[in-house]
Design a protein around this nucleic acid. Structure first.
Lengths: 352, 352
DNA sequence: GTGAAAGCGCTAACAA
DNA sequence: TTGTTAGCGCTTTCAC
């Protein structure tokens, strides 16, 4: 492969416009102290020559890299892709994050890291050294990983923590899981359900706790007890089956169940079917997170829709804005989830 | 944000190892003419200091950018993400492409371009100028777009064309759609079906034709006629409904249908259900492409599984290998698709 | 086999 | 408001 050079550089533009490199640079970076007529002249040359600055050179010059890293957990992400079960977290993230990046001349690079292992630090440092990203987006369950956060803070890299409410370095963004769980519970309460079970997610996800809190809060507000109505899974299908079994085996089983993710909800649905429990007639079901299989399940499931794309977009915007001035990151950004009612929830039977 | 500098540079390594920059560079790039003991000494320093070369600087120095672009059609990709219907093309591509990139120290950047518009050229040139990628991966329906191909060839950028068999610049990779369609058809023939309908994809996808060819070939080989058994859609759900209707409205309707993608298959399934035609008892159904909704449909659909991840991985490998020496790209790489039999296909009823 | 020089395309700091 | 100078971290010549 031949040594590849930029065909049109800032020099060409400068020459064509009859100005110095610096002026062109200023125009590109929308810096002040350039006369409007100069701006126009330079922009004309840029358009004429089809000039596009080299990101590598911009980075070398000491400014931005125009790269934002989206950090995901390697194991979980790959498992999701391999199973082909429609976990569209990454897609939604790209939808929001990548498009927003593009709009600002940035690129989003997805990096998978072994977040649970002890070489996160090495992996992250290597990524930072190689790419020198302007920002990093953290996704659950790593949004509050102190190792990552400290490292990023030390390196003065702007970063966003999706699914976090903690203050501290980095921007916290949340879909308000507690509220979402409350809404879901209230929906069921409104349908007359009094025994509403909840299948929680694993503890290494902060949001697992928030969802339980939301459910508990709504139950309490409605004057309903929660004893024996809470089970826990690990977001996997098998764990969902076990949790659902525990709930349904009770003497006084729930008439409705909210499960903390799609797989556990589907497991519950399958168990119900296996036992001849009809959904929604005998059991109402709500899925936390609205993945494709949830939408296309039979019946299509009522679900909590998490605005992953919007949150990702917001994260990117915060990071980009942070490059320029100080952005106030003291308060977490809230992009609330909502409940999409489909056919897996219905009013409780009068006859019971 | 403070001007960010590399913490450990090649200079530090050189100083630590007591050699020149050059020697370090040679070791990094595995160039010849370095004594083994030198290599070892340098690598020890690299490990000790945790040095990772800056991709931007490497690019500036005139070598690779360690960036590979995956080019997808903007409109289709975004539509897929927004519909949340589980089109996992991008995921599978990341699974194969991104991971393979990572293994070689490369990164994959997904770029969406308005491939149908007249400013593809501008968009692509801009991406090339900004990123200076070492390679580009083209996906259908753009894998044989002459505008893109010529542009890439002119710029001497290695590229791969996924879903193409044409020789020419760039590496052609195919999942052998014709064979896949033949296999699917043969599966149905083996089950006793004689009237097997086919819903083709739009003509702007080369592969649409290949699939029809495969079906035609298998039908001919089995001595079966194809008159009135071919319909065409545009990969959209509505078009699938129309095509299925055309097929099923015939005087002598097919007992089995193969549709060229998931949406059209699901549309056919829905239409059948609407008309009281039971799948698979009354109608066998095969989907081309095995997306999540196909796997979780009722019944789970027999489908052609396209090895998108493997093909993407192969594409990345070819591009990376091409950076060094000449890779023989005269023959298309074939990674065959296979048929996954599920519950939407069954032996034809004897009573008919 | 190894090292010193020059330069990639750009921006920061300074000067005018 | 504009231009000049000196790097950024690396690779590519080309000497030794």
């Amino acid at each position: 492969m031949a040594r590849r050079r930029q065909s049109v550089t800032i020099k060409h533009v400068a020459a064509d416009a009859g100005v110095s490199l610096q002026t062109v640079s200023r125009v590109i970076n929308k810096e002040p102290n350039v006369r409007p007529e100069m701006i126009e002249r330079v922009q004309a040359s840029i358009a004429k020559l089809g000039y596009v600055p080299s990101i590598a050179a911009q980075r070398m010059g000491g400014s931005r890299s125009y790269l934002i890293l989206a950090l995901n957990d390697r194991e979980r992400t790959i498992a999701g892709w391999q199973s082909r079960e429609g976990t569209d977290w990454v897609d939604q993230m790209l939808l929001g994050g990548m498009l927003t990046c593009a709009r600002h001349g940035y690129r989003m690079i997805v990096e998978l890291v072994d977040t649970h292992s002890d070489h996160i630090e090495r992996e992250l440092l290597a990524a930072i050294a190689a790419l020198q990203p302007d920002g990093v987006i953290l996704t659950p369950p790593h949004s509050e990983n102190p190792l990552i956060i400290d490292l990023l803070a030390e390196h003065r890299i702007s970063f966003a923590r999706i699914g976090s409410v903690k203050p501290g370095p980095g921007f916290a963004l949340t879909m308000d899981d507690e509220r979402a769980a409350r809404l879901a519970t209230e929906h069921l309460v409104g349908l007359g359900h009094r025994r509403i079970g909840f299948i929680a997610g694993p503890d290494d996800f902060e949001l697992s706790g928030w969802r339980v809190d939301g459910w508990r809060g709504a139950m309490a507000a409605a004057g309903l007890a929660t004893d024996g109505l809470l089970a826990q899974g690990d977001f996997g299908y098998a764990s969902g089956t076990a949790a659902a079994r525990a709930l349904l085996d009770a003497l006084d089983p729930p008439t409705a169940i909210i499960a903390s993710n799609d797989q556990m909800t589907l497991a519950t649905l399958a168990l119900a079917r296996e036992r001849g429990i009809e959904v929604p007639a005998d059991l109402s079901l709500i899925s936390f997170d609205d993945t494709p299989i949830v939408r296309f399940a039979h019946p299509p499931l009522t679900a909590v829709v998490q605005p992953i794309a919007e949150v990702s977009a917001k994260a990117v915007e915060l990071i980009i804005a942070d490059q320029a001035g100080q952005v106030d990151g003291s308060q977490p950004i809230v992009v609330p989830a909502r409940v999409e009612v489909r056919n897996s929830t219905t009013a409780i039977r009068e006859t019971e």
